[in-house]
Structures are given as C-alpha cells and as structure tokens.
C-alpha cells in the first residue's frame, strides 16, 4: 500500500525521484499531490510504502532530489507531516 508521500514543487524532481527510487528497488507512483499536502498549490508527490520511507528519503537526499515534505496518509484519509 502506498501510504507515504514525498512532495515536490516541480514535476521534473518528482520524475527524477521516481527513477532514482526505482533504480534502488523501491516501488513508487508519481501523482499530483493532494491539496492537503500541497499548501503552495499545484505540486507532485511520490507515493510509496511507509516501510520504504526512511531508506527512500536517504536515497533521494543522496541523489540531490529535493523534496518539500514527507507525509503519512492516516486511516481517516487525512495526512500527517513526518520528520524523516
């Protein structure tokens, strides 16, 4: 289940992040970020499994793919900001 989201202002960074994660064996989906996690309007998110979150963040940082935030989808459909 894809319940962890890394957000990006630019689709290019989302695409680059998706490719970097895939190269490291982490499955994810690139999508338009839900409004709740895109306070600046119009953003993109990589959705992946929560268990890949910490490793995924490390991989993105190492590749210089700047995420604007990490979010966990809650059972009620809302989002909680994570400090990864």
């Amino acid at each position: 289940m894809y319940d962890l989201f890394f957000t990006f202002r630019s689709v290019t960074y989302g695409q680059k992040g998706r490719d970097v994660l895939a190269q490291n064996g982490i499955r994810c989906r690139l999508l338009r970020a839900p409004r709740e996690i895109a306070p600046g309007g119009c953003a993109y998110a990589l959705a992946l499994s929560e268990r890949d979150g910490t490793r995924g963040r490390t991989i993105l940082d190492r590749a210089g793919v700047r995420s604007t935030g990490s979010w966990l989808r809650l059972p009620d459909g809302g989002f909680s900001r994570l400090d990864l």
Binding site: S10, T12, A43
Partner: peptide, 17 residues
Amino acid sequence: GTGSSSLDQNMPAELPD
C-alpha cells in the same frame, strides 16, 4: 504558469520551472 507552486506569484526557484 508552470503547473507548480501556483499560489506563489513569484516564479519558482526550482529549475527547470
């Protein structure tokens, strides 16, 4: 328009946007 950060009236800092 860049399809990103639409509420911000300044051009995005990120490349390539």
